[in-house]
Computed example of a mutant assay.
Amino acid sequence: MKFFYLSSNPNDEGKYEIHERECELIPDILDREYLGPFNNGKEAMRKAVDLNPKASTCKQCCNTTFQAVFFKNN
């Protein structure tokens, strides 16, 4: 799991970005709100929208897609 935060200040488009704790673009500690632990940015978005309807995911750290891989043992 990763830890996600919601920016308290809007970006140039007026959106409040969700960032992973390790993101190089994460705002200073006083300019963000802790969302909690999630598997990915899409899951964090569900909570963030409740806090701020103008929430959006960071293109830098939340743009990864998860794809499950299953192996068949013979």
Rank of each mutant, 00 (worst) to 15 (best):
D28Y: 10
T64W: 08
Y34K: 13
T65R: 10
N52V: 06
V49W: 00
R46F: 09
H19M: 05
E13D: 11
A48S: 06
A48R: 01
F4K: 02
G41H: 04
K15M: 01
L6K: 01
L30Q: 14
Y16T: 00
Y16S: 01
E20S: 09
P10N: 06
L6V: 00
I18Q: 00
I18G: 00
R21F: 10
F4Y: 15
E22R: 10
Q67W: 10
T57E: 03
G14S: 08
G36N: 09
L51N: 13
T57Q: 05
S8I: 05
G41M: 03
D28C: 10
Y34D: 11
Y34C: 06
Q60G: 06
N40F: 04
M45Y: 11
N73R: 15
I18R: 01
A55T: 04
F38R: 01
F4D: 00
D31P: 00
E13H: 09
F70T: 12
N52T: 05
P53C: 05
R46I: 12
R46G: 05
S8Q: 11
G36W: 07
A68H: 15
D31Y: 14
F70L: 14
P53Y: 07
F70S: 14
N39I: 13
N39D: 12
R21Y: 11
N39R: 09
N9C: 12
V49L: 09
L30S: 13
R21L: 13
H19S: 04
L25F: 13
I18M: 01
K42I: 08
A68D: 12
E43K: 08
E13N: 10
P27R: 04
A44F: 01
S56N: 06
M1R: 08
M45D: 02
E20V: 10
L30T: 12
L35F: 04
Y5V: 01
F38C: 03
E17Q: 15
Q67A: 15
N52D: 08
